[in-house]
Amino acid sequence: MTTLVQSQVRDASGTRAIFMALAFGLALIASVGFASASAIHDAAHDVRHTTGFPCH
């Protein structure tokens, strides 16, 4: 019983960490690859071209 509860707690915190990392990663990728603000576009311009993100 104790083991079961502990493993459920560990799984819950692991799952939360996985979702946080996924969300943070998607936010970084979206800002480099898709954000249209001109400062971001200009800084990321060459990266977008070379990594295959549609740029203009």
Binding site: I18, L28, I29, D46
Partner: peptide
């Protein structure tokens, strides 16, 4: 700027990759 932005982009990919590795590790 290009090198810096490239690091940001691959850190983004790295987060997704590490999260999925963690999921499969579990």
């Amino acid at each position: 700027l290009t090198v810096m932005v490239m690091v940001v982009l691959y850190c983004g990919y790295g987060l997704i990759l590490a999260a999925l590795m963690a999921y499969r590790g579990q």
